[in-house]
């Protein structure tokens, strides 16, 4: 039997904001849970993120946005992914995102939004739940 391939996740921090505590904690938690994590670093444009996703052949992309720019960045990301034929990639996010916007982003195809206070195990379980089913 073929050895199970590790889940590969790209974590990216788009926009101008540099608050990277949350994304780094998540990065470690995913790594500790056995995933391969590529962390983009700061100030990534949606184009850069999608390119990295292509090059690295990841299974999912997580975006951390605390600045309030989520309503601009997510739609852009989703459009770009579609353009590149990557619509089936799992996209999830985290940050300071109000409930109303969370719902709207989900209808756009964003899988899940995790806000302040989320247990990292919930994020791990979510990703595994979605990707291991496939």
């Amino acid at each position: 039997m073929q050895e199970k391939r590790k889940i590969r996740i790209l974590l990216a921090k788009p926009g101008l904001d540099g608050h990277d505590r949350g994304i780094k904690v998540v990065a470690r938690a995913l790594r500790d849970a056995g995933m391969e994590v590529i962390y983009s670093g700061l100030h990534q444009t949606p184009e850069q993120i999608v390119n990295t996703a292509l090059q690295e052949g990841v299974d999912g992309i997580g975006l951390s946005i605390l600045s309030g720019a989520h309503n601009t960045i997510f739609p852009k990301m989703m459009a770009l992914l579609k353009e590149k034929g990557l619509s089936d990639l799992l996209v999830f996010g985290g940050g300071t995102i109000p409930p109303k916007d969370r719902e709207r982003l989900k209808t756009m195809g964003v899988g899940e939004i995790f806000t302040s206070g989320t247990d990292t195990r919930d994020i791990v379980n979510y990703i595994k739940g979605v990707l291991e089913k496939v």
Partner: peptide
């Protein structure tokens, strides 16, 4: 402003007046 860019900078789309 924090990142030293003007509001019309393309990199700032969606972030003007943010946070």
């Amino acid at each position: 402003t924090i990142m030293g860019r003007d509001s019309d900078d393309p990199l700032c789309e969606g972030e003007v007046g943010s946070s």
